[in-house]
Amino acid sequence: MFQHPGDSNISKFQVSEFILMGFPGIHTWQHWLSLPLALLYLLALTANILILIIINQEATLHQPMYFFLGVLAVVDMGLATTIMPKILAILWFSAKAISLPECFAQMYVIHCFVAMESGIFVCMAIDRYIAICKPLRYPAIVTDSFVVKATVFMALRNSLATIPVPVLAAQRHYCSQNQIEHCLCSNLGVTSLSCDDRTINSVYQLLLAWTLMGSDLALIFLSYALILHSVLKLNSAEAASKALSTCTSHLILILFFYTVIVVISITHNAAMTLPLVPVLLNVLHNVIPPALNPMVYALKNRELRQGLYKVLKMDKEN
Rank of each mutant, 00 (worst) to 15 (best):
Q3Y: 09
H4K: 13
P5G: 00
D7H: 12
S16C: 10
M21F: 01
G22L: 15
F23T: 07
F23R: 06
T28Y: 09
Q30N: 10
H31Y: 12
Y41I: 05
N48R: 12
I49Q: 02
I51Q: 03
I53D: 11
N56Y: 00
P64G: 00
M65A: 09
F67Q: 15
F68Q: 05
L69I: 06
L72F: 01
D76F: 02
M77W: 02
L79I: 04
P85K: 13
K86A: 04
I87L: 12
K96R: 15
A97L: 00
P101G: 07
F104S: 02
Q106K: 02
Y108P: 05
V109Q: 13
F113H: 12
E117V: 01
S118F: 01
G119C: 11
F121L: 06
C123S: 15
I130N: 06
A131V: 01
V142P: 13
F146N: 14
V152G: 04
M154K: 13
L156C: 14
T162P: 01
P164Q: 05
L168K: 12
C175P: 01
C175V: 05
S176L: 11
Q179L: 09
N187R: 07
L188C: 07
S194G: 03
S194V: 00
D196C: 08
D197S: 02
R198K: 13
Y204H: 11
L208R: 10
L219V: 05
Y224A: 04
L228H: 08
L228D: 02
N235S: 06
S236R: 11
V262H: 04
I266W: 13
T267H: 06
N269M: 08
N269W: 06
M272L: 04
L276C: 04
H285S: 14
H285K: 07
N286A: 14
P294I: 03
K300C: 11
K300D: 02
L312K: 12
E317S: 11
